[in-house]
Structures are given as C-alpha cells and as structure tokens.
Simulated scan of single mutants.
Amino acid sequence: MDIDILIEDDGWDEPALEALAARACETTLDELGLEPQQYAVSILACDDDRIATLNAEFRGKPTPTNVLSWPSEERAPAAPGEMPHLPRPNPAGPPEELGDIALALGVLTREAQEGAKPFDHHLAHLLVHGLLHLLGFDHITDPDAALMEGLETRILARLGVPDPY
C-alpha cells in the first residue's frame, strides 16, 4: 500500500506511525478482499489546533476531533446497511487514490488516557475507522453503524486490539 504521511506535530513518533498505518491499512483492505498494493492513502498527523481548523472548514464544527477523512470519490451504498461501492482498480495501473485522513495527537492521547487504552490501540482503531470512511462506510444510521463497527471489531482483532465498543 502506498501511504504518504505528513507530520505537522513533532510529538508524533514517525516510524511508529508509519509502521502502524501500514499494518492497519493493509489489514483493513485485506479484510475487504482488496489487494493493498493497488491502493494509496495520505495521512496528516497534526495537532489539535490544525484539526479544529479543518473541522470548522469542512464540517462547520470549530472544535478538535480525533480523526477526519476526505474520500477521493463518493462510494456510499444505495441503502443503509449495504456494502459501499468498493473500488476495483486496474491491477496494471497506478495505485487507486482513496483519499486523505487527518489525525490529532492531543485528542488521541487524551481519549486513550480517558479510556484506559494503549495509545497504539486507539490509533489503530482511528486509522481503520478513517480508512473505512474513505471506502464509503459510515455510521450515521443504525444499519450503517452496525456494519462499520462489526468490520472495525474484526479488523482490530486481527491487529491484536480488543473490541473498542
């Protein structure tokens, strides 16, 4: 998988983020029957101020959040609870750009501490969560949430992370 990471906050451990992002993203794609080498994603590792600015700009919510995602194209399913329209790139072509994910170090750290979770487990969850959003999954309706959360739980189990729900 082609993962481009931009670090904007020096508090991030770049080698650890790179390794965990590769494992989480490749496991997510594999769980969905997608060949990881055919896909690409960009990750912004930022601070709370930067993600609050992005959250205000794109969602109208001027507060920090843990993860944001911007899919390269709309892949939502036709009806709630159905599988989204997963991309199927040409195997001979360049990797399919799935979109961008932003992660806020301060929010992730606080949430992990408050939830008594290892930071890496929480980060893995949010990487999987963000990538699933890029693939067209959502959690707005109950059927969509059940599908997405079930996938997250199975993928995280493969990564050795307990059920976050």
Rank of each mutant, 00 (worst) to 15 (best):
D2T: 15
D4V: 14
L6Q: 15
I7T: 15
E8C: 14
G11D: 10
E14N: 09
P15M: 02
A16S: 08
A16Q: 13
L17W: 11
E18A: 13
L20H: 04
A21M: 08
R23I: 00
R23C: 00
A24S: 14
A24C: 11
T27P: 08
L29N: 03
D30I: 12
E31G: 03
L32S: 10
L32G: 08
G33M: 13
G33H: 09
G33D: 10
L34E: 03
E35P: 00
Q37Y: 10
Q37A: 15
Y39T: 03
A40P: 02
A40D: 07
S42H: 08
L44Q: 02
L44H: 09
L44N: 04
A45C: 13
C46S: 15
D47C: 11
D49M: 02
I51A: 00
I51V: 08
I51L: 05
I51P: 01
A52M: 04
A52G: 07
T53P: 00
L54I: 03
A56K: 02
A56V: 00
E57Y: 00
F58W: 15
F58S: 06
G60F: 10
G60N: 11
K61N: 13
P62N: 02
T65A: 00
V67C: 13
V67N: 07
L68F: 01
P71T: 01
S72Y: 04
E73W: 06
E74I: 13
R75V: 09
R75I: 04
P77S: 11
P77E: 04
A78N: 09
A79E: 12
A79K: 14
P80C: 04
G81W: 01
M83A: 12
P84E: 02
H85I: 11
L86R: 10
P87T: 11
P87I: 06
R88L: 11
R88G: 04
R88W: 05
R88P: 00
R88A: 14
R88C: 06
P89D: 05
N90A: 05
N90L: 01
P91Q: 06
G93V: 03
P94G: 02
P94I: 12
P95V: 09
D100W: 14
D100M: 12
I101K: 03
A102H: 06
A102Q: 02
A102W: 07
L103G: 05
A104E: 06
L105E: 03
V107A: 10
V107R: 06
L108T: 12
R110M: 09
Q113H: 14
G115K: 14
G115N: 14
G115T: 09
A116W: 01
H121M: 02
H121K: 03
H122N: 10
H125F: 13
H125E: 14
H125I: 00
L127M: 15
V128C: 10
H129P: 09
H129Y: 09
H129E: 08
H133I: 07
L134D: 07
L134Q: 12
L135C: 02
G136P: 10
F137C: 11
D138A: 15
H139G: 07
I140N: 07
D142V: 13
P143K: 13
P143V: 02
A145K: 13
A146H: 12
L147V: 15
M148T: 12
E149L: 14
G150K: 14
L151W: 05
T153S: 11
A157I: 07
A157H: 07
G160L: 03
G160A: 05
V161F: 07
P162E: 14
P162Y: 04
P162W: 08
D163Q: 01
D163R: 01
P164W: 09
Y165R: 15
